[in-house]
């Protein structure tokens, strides 16, 4: 094994930053499309399903638990497991939100506003699942090997970003839909 040197960044951290940049751009493209599309007559305004506010709290809580997990890594990995659980709860919550919309007769193709809701939340959900996978991987490793701090660092960064991204989407969707 080659030895690590102390550097300002690790590849994992750089990688996550670069990934964040890519996701931001992607969301920017969608936002641009949304703003262009919003001016048309077929845009239907609707209220967001209330469950997504609960989801928001869950996601924010998961960021806090992850910070705790990081601080207490030596003491065990249960905070990590809790974070992972909260992440999954969020995803389930999203599915419920979609079903709620579908119940109101708002489907993907009903109006561009509903389409953007589905597309943006699905995009966020997919990326969040990526984060869940990373946490699961770390959970597996933290028990067996030492020295996952760097990777956990990077995963935490990504997870917090998922929270920030969600807040942005929530703001965008409440203001625009």
């Amino acid at each position: 094994m080659s030895v690590r040197v102390e550097r300002m960044t690790t590849p994992a951290r750089t990688g996550v930053w670069v990934g964040i940049a890519a996701i931001v751009l992607m969301v920017a493209a969608f936002t641009g499309a949304l703003i262009v599309r919003r001016t048309e007559a077929d845009w239907i305004h609707f209220r967001l399903p209330p469950i997504i506010y609960i989801n928001t709290l869950v996601l924010l809580a998961s960021s806090a638990t992850l910070e705790r997990a990081r601080a207490r890594l030596a003491a065990g990995s249960h905070w990590l497991a809790i974070t992972l659980g909260l992440g999954l709860v969020f995803v389930v919550g999203q599915v419920l939100a979609w079903r709620n919309l579908a119940g109101q007769g708002l489907f993907l193709a009903t109006s561009p506003s509903s389409a953007f809701f589905y597309v943006l939340t699905a995009l966020h959900g997919l990326h969040l699942l990526g984060g869940v996978a990373a946490l699961a991987y770390l959970l597996g490793r933290v028990r067996r090997v030492q020295g996952v701090a760097g990777a956990l660092d990077a995963a935490t960064l990504y997870w917090h970003f998922m929270g920030v991204l969600w807040l942005y989407l929530l703001l965008l969707l409440t203001l625009q839909l």
């Binding site: 670069v18 890519a22 996701i23 751009l25 992607m26 493209a29 389409a115 597309v119």
Partner: peptide, 17 residues
């Protein structure tokens, strides 16, 4: 590339939809 493909991907997703 990072910037360019981050824009084309959403465009393609919308086209597919």
């Amino acid at each position: 590339g990072l910037i360019a493909f981050s824009i084309l991907l959403p465009a393609c997703i919308l086209l597919i939809l």
